[in-house]
């Protein structure tokens, strides 16, 4: 899509918003991400009832109830698994997982890896603020090693990992990073991610103004990618591992076949199966 093209379509982003008021703190990056998601859905002209937003636990995972789509707000870290079952059962739905850095990368790390690997057609949107916000300020897998907190005085001493590189190594079919302070940019990434077949992963840097106030300066640190997305995982891997973590844009577009499975209730004739057992 052309970056200059305005996001105007049949649906307004307001058609995707429910009446439930978010619990987020004033100034939270997630407001911008939510707005980007609605703009992307509106641009794609997806009827709200044909979209399912699935989440786990955390500030970012509250989004399903704030949408006018179908929502599933499950347990901590397991949303990719719920979304997998839902998409296999109902392939015609657009399935989006909204998650955070703790939910997707820590407790849900195993599901993150295997969702990338399985390559079911869905989009994982991770709002990464490098902190556990809902439990009031603990380090996550993307928090710097020296970040001081009550639970880890002086820092965890453990280096953050690179989720985009992990996604690439695990087989994700579309990998991008955005910044919540650029809602239009995030909306464009989401449009592309939703449209691309297979498992798409979009990390959105989304500052936590309450527990990581220094993240307000991310707006000065982010910079958009100066190169075109690659289809070559080796090139993408090099870029991701040498990146400063603040480059936004699409890093990788793969062409792996989407995992599909037929699930239906049409055939109820068990007689052939039962005949196998006859003696």
């Amino acid at each position: 899509m052309n970056k200059a093209e305005p996001l105007i379509a049949r649906y307004s982003h307001k058609d995707y918003k429910s009446a439930v008021k978010p619990i987020w703190c004033p100034g939270c990056g997630h407001f911008g991400v939510e707005s980007s998601l609605f703009r992307a859905l509106a641009y794609l002209e997806l009827p709200p009832e044909q979209v399912a937003v699935v989440s786990g636990i955390g500030c970012s995972s509250r989004i399903p109830a704030y949408t006018q789509c179908y929502g599933f707000h499950g347990v901590h870290g397991r949303a990719p698994a719920v979304a997998t079952g839902l998409k296999l059962a109902r392939p015609e739905l657009t399935v989006i997982v909204t998650s955070g850095d703790g939910d997707a990368f820590s407790i849900g790390g195993n599901h993150f890896i295997h969702a990338c690997r399985r390559n079911v057609d869905m989009t994982l949107l991770v709002m990464d603020n490098e902190v556990y916000g809902m439990t009031k300020g603990q380090p996550s897998p993307t928090t710097p090693a020296d970040w001081d907190s009550k639970i880890a005085p002086g820092g965890t001493g453990v280096n953050p990992f690179a989720p985009l590189a992990v996604a690439l190594a695990s087989g994700a079919n579309f990998i991008a990073r955005g910044f919540s302070g650029d809602p239009n940019g995030v909306a464009r990434l989401l449009v592309e991610a939703i449209q691309h077949p297979g498992f798409s992963f979009v990390q959105v840097l989304s500052p936590c103004v309450t527990y990581r106030p220094e993240e307000k300066f991310w707006k000065k640190m982010v910079h958009s990618s100066s190169v075109e997305p690659t289809h070559d995982p080796a090139v993408a891997g090099h870029r991701l591992l040498s990146d400063d973590g603040f480059t936004t844009g699409v890093f990788y577009i793969g062409n792996r076949p989407t995992y599909t499975a037929t699930v239906g209730t049409s055939d109820n004739d068990l007689s052939a199966i039962e005949e196998e057992l006859a003696i």
Partner: peptide, 21 residues
Amino acid sequence: LGGQLIQAEDEIASMNMVLGA
């Protein structure tokens, strides 16, 4: 019968996939 059984990455995932479907 037009259905599907898939092997999940662990039992937590399998239970969650079931709820999704």
